[in-house]
Design a protein around this nucleic acid. Structure first.
Lengths: 192, 192
DNA sequence: TTCATTTGCTAACAAATGTTAGTTTTTTAT
DNA sequence: ATAAAAAACTAACATTTGTTAGCAAATGAA
């Protein structure tokens, strides 16, 4: 546990509030109360409310991309790559549930040009999953009706995680990743 | 196309705004502008901003439950039941994308006691999916690590739909339902 | 101690918010 | 044409909002 700077403390508390109540419904005075200071004092450390949101969203984008880069380097088959990509995604998600929730739900409150930049990144990230699936289909490892559709369904299955994952639950992040991969790759049915 | 009452028109425009900008970030003046009237005029038809949100959330809850009731009556095997439950869910979702988005994302802005009532309904709905899966596991139709986990993953896979579904896209709601069922029940892989 | 930095304060602002009261216009039914 | 009902208006309200300016206290290094 390294000591956090005051700015980092502010961002952390803001993340929790943005997850809990949403960005728009969180006032600077709410944030100040949680920090035990006055709202105006926050501005000794940050430029604006949106700056905090920007930081959270783009830092998480970075984390997701880095994790995906490392994961994709690992596998050779489409199955391996996808399993590792899923694991990478789940690990980032579970390591930072609050920031992930903000990343997934609050980005629309970014103003331009950040809003467009964010969407571009998100699309790039999804494209990486589409590529893996496309590769798997060519390979005859996968069989899907539409690769875009498949990619979105997979990411959807992963991105609800932050709403129910509890760090002290019975499944570890790694187990969750394994189970999710199994469900998405093999389905629920015992036989085909 | 039956004529909408003024109140229904207001709710419809509000639904679109709540989806687009979120409940908290939508002001009564925004809504009024879209309607082409003054903000105060809206109060000739509704009691409060939250009343609109309440109406949207609980009406959609009703729709989901009714669709699920009809679907569950249809099937005998767990597989059939789940396929029909998924279809029912997808049809409600695609028939009313905007209200669904509000239903899924904005319920947290309900105040008590509506907030708790809503959560209770949502849990009941999820429980219905858990039951189907539990039945399928006993039956040896399904093989899952944890039925709660499986139910949440399935619903997650469905509930992202509103973010990308376009009524004029190349897949019809029924095709989407079929493809989603296939993906979730059989997985991506060609062989097991 | 001294000085600079960090952190916080009080006071205030202009704008935006949900909502009300009371009135007038528009629509509908008789 | 007239009365009743529905729909919209203007004006205003009390709060809440993000943020700035200027000042004071706390902290750490020299």
């Amino acid at each position: 546990m390294k000591a956090l700077t005051r700015k980092e403390q502010i961002e952390k508390k803001a993340t929790a509030l943005f997850k809990e109540k949403g960005f728009a419904a969180t006032s600077m005075r709410d944030l100040a109360t949680v920090l035990g200071i006055e709202a105006a004092s926050i501005y000794s450390h940050i430029r604006s409310k949106e700056e905090i949101l920007h930081k959270i969203c783009f830092r998480m984008a970075d984390e997701f991309f880095q994790a995906l880069d490392a994961a994709e380097a690992a596998g050779t088959s489409a199955t391996e790559r996808l399993v590792e990509a899923i694991r990478a995604h789940v690990l980032v998600l579970t390591k930072n549930t609050e920031a992930s929730a903000v990343f997934l739900n609050e980005w629309r409150h970014l103003s331009e040009p950040s809003h467009s930049e964010f969407l571009k990144l998100r699309d790039q990230y999804e494209e990486r999953f589409r590529e893996i699936i496309r590769f798997g289909v060519k390979n005859r490892e996968f069989e899907v009706p539409d690769e875009k559709f498949a990619a979105l369904t997979i990411l959807s299955g992963l991105n609800w995680l932050h709403t129910w994952y509890k760090p002290n639950g019975k499944m570890s992040p790694n187990e969750i990743a394994t189970n999710l991969s199994a469900m998405l790759l093999n389905g629920l049915k015992t036989t085909k």
